[in-house]
Write a protein that binds this DNA or RNA. Structure first.
Lengths: 145, 145
DNA sequence: CTCTCTGCAAAGCATTTGCACATTG
DNA sequence: CAATGTGCAAATGCTTTGCAGAGAG
C-alpha cells in the first residue's frame, strides 16, 4: 500500500491538494485491489457520507495522472482502479469477472521492439489474459455432470 | 476480406439469416478496418438509408459471436470492429486514436503458460501497445519548436 | 403461419461536466 | 484573498432493449 508521504509528495509536486476526500479514496484503495468507482464510493462514504461519485472520478483521475493508481478497463466492464507503482498485467475471468495481477517481464522488450520499429514513441502496453479461472472451471465441470 | 460463402455458412450454422442489412454491414467492414459502430452506420446508410444503429450493434454482435468479426475496446474509446479471422494484437495512438494491427506470435506461448499455471481454462489474450504514432510524434516535435 | 429481423424510441450504464458554494494555503 | 476542490444534478457517449410491424422460409 502507498504511504501518505509518497502520496503527499506526488500531489504537491503537481498543483493538487491532499484533501480529506482524496485521502479517503486512497485508504479505500489501500486494502483492496481492482475496485470499481462505485465500490470505492461505498467505502469512502462509510467513513465520510456525502461524498459524490463525481469527486471519486475526479480523484481517481488525478491519482492516475500522477502515477499512483493504475486503471484497468476492458470492453464494456466498468473500469477497475488499483493503487500500485508496479508494472503488471491482468488475467480476467469471463465468468465471475475476477481480476488477477500477473507480472510478465518478457513483454516490455517485445512491446518496445515492435513499437519502435513502427516509429511509436512514449510507449505503454497492456496484456490481458481472458479465460475461466480455476474456481469457475471447477464449478462449470461439476454443473455439467 | 471475408467472402459471402464464409459468412453465409457461418450464419446458417447458427439460426441466423443473411439479411440485406447484415450483408451491408459486412460490406462496410470489408474494405476498412477498425471501424466504430457509428462509422459503419454511415457507410451502410450510404447504400441503404433508414438502417438503425440498433441493427448495426445487433449485427456486429452476431458476427462476433460466430467469429467473423473481432472487437477492440479499450478504456473509454468507442469499440472498433474488424472483419478478420486472424489472431492479432493492436497498437493504439493516444493522440489521433489510430489503431494498427500487429502480429506477435511469441505471446501465445507466454500467455498459455501463465494461464495454465494459475488454473485458467479457455484462454484468450490481448495485448495493446499504447503510444504516439510516428506521424503524431513528428507533429508534436514540430509544434514544440 | 411461424420465427426471425428491423426501425424507432426509450432506457441503461459508466463517466464527465457546469455551476455555486466550501475549503485550502 | 486567490486558487483549488466539492456536491449536486444534468449532460454525455456508447450500447442495449422493448415493442409493434415487416420480412423470410
Amino acid at each position: 500500500m502507498l504511504d501518505v508521504k509518497t502520496v503527499d509528495a506526488g500531489l504537491l509536486q503537481s498543483r493538487y491538494r491532499l484533501t480529506k476526500q482524496r485521502a479517503a479514496v486512497l485508504r479505500a484503495l489501500g486494502d483492496g485491489t481492482h475496485l470499481s468507482a462505485e465500490t470505492i464510493l461505498e467505502r469512502v462514504r462509510a467513513e465520510m457520507p456525502g461524498v459524490s461519485l463525481g469527486t471519486i472520478y475526479r480523484t481517481l483521475d488525478i491519482l492516475r495522472e500522477i502515477g499512483l493508481v493504475q486503471v484497468f478497463s476492458f470492453g464494456g466492464i466498468a473500469a477497475r482502479y488499483e493503487a500500485t507503482l508496479e508494472k503488471h498485467h491482468h488475467m480476467l475471468c469471463t465468468d465471475c469477472r475476477s481480476l488477477v495481477n500477473v507480472r510478465i517481464d518478457a513483454l516490455g522488450e517485445i512491446a518496445r521492439a515492435i513499437a519502435s520499429h513502427e516509429g511509436y514513441s512514449e510507449i505503454d502496453f497492456a496484456m490481458t489474459i481472458v479465460g475461466r479461472c480455476a474456481g469457475c472451471t471447477k464449478r462449470a465441470v461439476t454443473a455439467a455432470t
